[in-house]
Design a protein around this nucleic acid. Structure first.
Length: 260
DNA sequence: ATGTCGCATTCCATGCGA
C-alpha cells in the first residue's frame, strides 16, 4: 500500500506532471495540496479517464486539497473541525480499504504563517492546535491513519540547507516546531524520521534565487502515522527528480509504503 | 537584496501569496 503527498502549486498548471507521477509511482492514494481552483475547475475528467477516483475540497485562487485514489474514498470529511469561521480549504480526509481493514488518510495544507507579526501566524498556530485535537479523536479509532501534507514546518535544523536563514520564519520558529512536536507527542510517528536520521533530505526548493540549482531546500512535506500504520511502515521515498522536470511545482512528492 | 511562479483584476501592468 503506497500513500503519497504532493503540493502541486496549481493542479491545472501541473496536470501533465500529475499524470506522469501517478503513472511512474503507482500510489494507491495521492494527497494533493494547493489546487488553486474550485471543485468545478478541477481536472476531474482527465484523472477519471486514467482510472483514478477523485475527492476534492477546492477554493478559488488559493489553497484547495484533494485525495486521488484507486479505490473510492469513503466517509469523506471536508474542512478541519474546531473553527466554523475558517473558510480556507486546507483539509480533506477519508477512508480506503486496506487488506481486511481500513486506512484513513488526510490531505493537509497547513498555513504558511508568514509574516509572523500579522494575524497569519496565530492562524497557523490555531490550525495546528485544531489538527492536534482532531488527530487525537481519530487515534481513538485505533486504525491505520496517515496524516499527509504540506505542514509548512521545518522540524529540525537538519531539514534546511541554511537553517540560519529561517530562524525568524514562521516555518522554523521555536513555537512552530514545538507545536509540531506536540502533534507527534499524542502518539503519531513522522514517517521519514522513522526510517533515517540523515540531514539534507528536502521536499521544497524556492523558485527564487536559484534555490534548486544550489540545493537550497527545506523539508516541510510530512506523513504522520498512527501506531497501526507505523507498525507496517516499509519505507519512505522523496521523488526529488520531479523538481527537475520542465515547469515544476516548488514541492516534490513524498511517498511511503505500508505492508499489506 | 529576493534573482520566480500562479492567480486575479486594475487586464498587456500590477498586487498578493508563497
Amino acid at each position: 500500500m503506497r500513500i503519497a503527498t504532493w503540493n502541486v502549486n496549481s493542479v491545472r498548471q501541473r496536470l501533465g506532471h500529475l499524470l506522469d507521477f501517478l503513472r511512474e509511482a503507482e500510489p494507491d492514494a495521492l494527497c494533493l495540496q494547493e489546487l488553486k481552483c474550485t471543485d468545478a475547475d478541477f481536472p476531474r475528467a482527465e484523472l477519471e479517464a486514467a482510472g483514478w477516483q477523485v475527492a476534492t475540497h477546492g477554493q478559488k485562487t488559493f489553497n484547495g486539497v484533494a485525495i486521488i485514489s484507486r479505490s473510492p474514498l469513503e466517509d469523506v470529511r471536508r474542512g478541519l473541525p474546531g473553527d466554523d469561521g475558517d473558510e480556507q480549504a486546507r483539509y480533506i480526509e477519508g477512508v480506503l480499504p486496506f487488506g481486511t481493514r481500513v486506512l484513513r488518510v488526510a490531505s493537509i495544507y497547513l498555513p504558511n504563517g508568514n509574516p509572523v507579526n500579522t494575524e497569519k501566524y496565530p492562524y497557523k498556530l490555531g490550525f495546528m492546535r485544531r489538527l492536534k485535537n482532531h488527530a487525537q479523536e481519530l487515534l481513538q479509532h485505533e486504525e491505520a491513519l496517515v496524516l499527509a501534507g504540506d505542514y509548512n514546518v521545518i522540524p529540525d535544523s537538519r531539514d534546511a540547507r541554511d537553517p540560519a536563514a529561517w530562524v525568524h520564519d514562521a516555518l522554523f520558529l521555536p513555537q512552530t516546531r514545538s507545536a509540531f512536536q506536540e502533534l507527534l507527542n499524542i502518539g503519531l510517528t513522522e514517517a521519514l524520521r522513522a526510517t533515517t536520521d540523515a540531514a539534507g533530505l528536502y521536499t521544497f526548493w524556492d523558485y527564487q534565487a536559484g534555490a534548486w540549482q544550489r540545493n537550497n531546500g527545506i523539508r516541510i512535506d510530512h506523513l504522520l502515522l498512527s501506531p497501526q500504520a507505523a507498525d507496517r511502515l516499509e519505507g519512505v521515498t522523496i521523488a526529488k527528480h520531479v523538481r527537475g522536470w520542465d515547469k515544476p511545482s516548488d514541492h516534490v512528492p513524498v511517498m511511503l509504503a505500508l505492508k499489506a
